[in-house]
Design a protein around this nucleic acid. Structure first.
Lengths: 227, 227
DNA sequence: GAGGTTTGTCAACACTTGTTCACTGAAATG
DNA sequence: CATTTCAGTGAACAAGTGTTGACAAACCTC
């Protein structure tokens, strides 16, 4: 299982255009081609369960049977998509951590940054939001797992940053973050459905969600733990 | 040929329960048979877009071509399902209005009553919650319409009942109800996914949503309108 | 009660689907 | 160098799909 056979065995490894030709890398490349094809088809307004194996390989420019070299069946591909989406989700948190808390008007600018991130990764978010409640049981469970994982990380961050400037039990913090996360997933679904180039509608939507989040944090400040 | 005779052909179904044989009623009856068949298939963990016309008529005990006597295509059936779901949604509000506000522990008993209602109409709720974000664009739009309609009615009720005991602009009230409604739709999706006969898990889930709603209303009490 | 209307049936159509098997050719191994 | 491994191909399969048209029988209207 040694990786990268970059040693003294330079066969015709240069004919292409300076790109990697190792077998494993090629495999992974067409694998993501398949994943991307599935995401693209779903972005046309289809649900994952309605996708066909042939349809995906066609979109990917492959022959149907090539599918089996990468996934046992469609369910396995779906789970791979969930994992990709989960990574995208966690990267959001990681970047937010690195960028620090916005200086002023924290909530509004956070919502704006978040929605930009959603647009940037609309394929992943479209998949996660769309299949979170509607997909096959296996995929729903996997997504739910990723989302709760994300929620817990977020709760931890808020606790460490003392963002709520109050002492709240971790259970309460998780409850609050659960509300915030599901609200923001709703928001993701909404902007992705928005007709393009409609800054008026978009702004209304953003303001609506800003208010909802404000409400949530207002409640959080007043929260009293009960024995 | 023409030997088929009377092998369970539904045409021989007249002396059943002594009544209605009028054509329109029969039509509407098999129409709902089709709708119910679609809902049942979805309740097995499938998304609407993955359903086939033949599959539905088969489940309904009809011949594929009979479908066209009721719906032009699958999209039309989907919209009919949305309408049915919308009616179920509004009936919840109507019944709540009639029953009045629960005496004590308003939020917890409301959540419990709501979840009972969801279980009672799990097919409709499963459809609405599942297709709200994941379905075809046409169906998503239709569902969104029903949900905002529901939200507005709820806001109106709260205003008339003086339930929040504060003066809040209708816009703010709608914003709050929007948060409540999407949270409760989330809750519906969660209990419907719960493995049956797990009162422990179910109770945790209920308590979680009770706390989230408490948080929201706590925020609503503190809300300050901004010019 | 005759005649039109309409719900449901039956047979058939042209396609698409998932999966199999044997195959090719290039990368990997030794 | 020869050999093995394996991502991708191509042909073929049984089964399922949406949709068509002609037809039977029951309801409705006159």
């Amino acid at each position: 299982m040694s990786e990268s056979g970059k040693r003294g065995s330079p066969t015709a490894a240069q004919a292409n255009e300076g790109t990697l030709i190792t077998r494993g890398e090629r495999k992974q490349r067409t694998r993501t081609t398949l994943l991307d094809a599935a995401l693209k088809l779903m972005s046309e307004g289809r649900s994952f369960t309605s996708l066909g194996l042939r349809e995906i390989t066609r979109e990917a420019g492959l022959v149907p049977t090539a599918f089996y070299r990468h996934f046992r069946d469609m369910d396995e591909l779906g789970l791979a998509l969930v994992e990709e989406g989960g990574i995208t989700l966690r990267r959001l948190l990681r970047e937010a951590r690195k960028a620090g808390v916005p200086a002023e008007d924290i909530i509004r600018s956070s919502v704006r940054i978040y929605l930009m991130y959603v647009r940037e990764h609309h394929l992943h978010f479209g998949f996660i939001v769309g299949e979170r409640m509607g997909g096959s049981p296996a995929i729903r469970r996997a997504i739910r797992l990723e989302v709760t994982h994300f929620t817990n990380e977020m709760a931890q961050d808020i606790q460490q940053l003392r963002l709520l400037s109050r002492e709240l039990s971790t259970a309460t913090l998780q409850m609050i973050c659960g509300l915030v996360v599901s609200t923001m997933l709703n928001a993701a679904g909404d902007i992705l459905d928005l007709p393009p180039k409609q800054p008026k509608l978009e702004n209304e939507l953003v303001e609506g969600y800003v208010q909802q989040l404000r409400l949530v944090f207002l409640g959080a400040m007043q929260w009293k733990e009960r024995g």
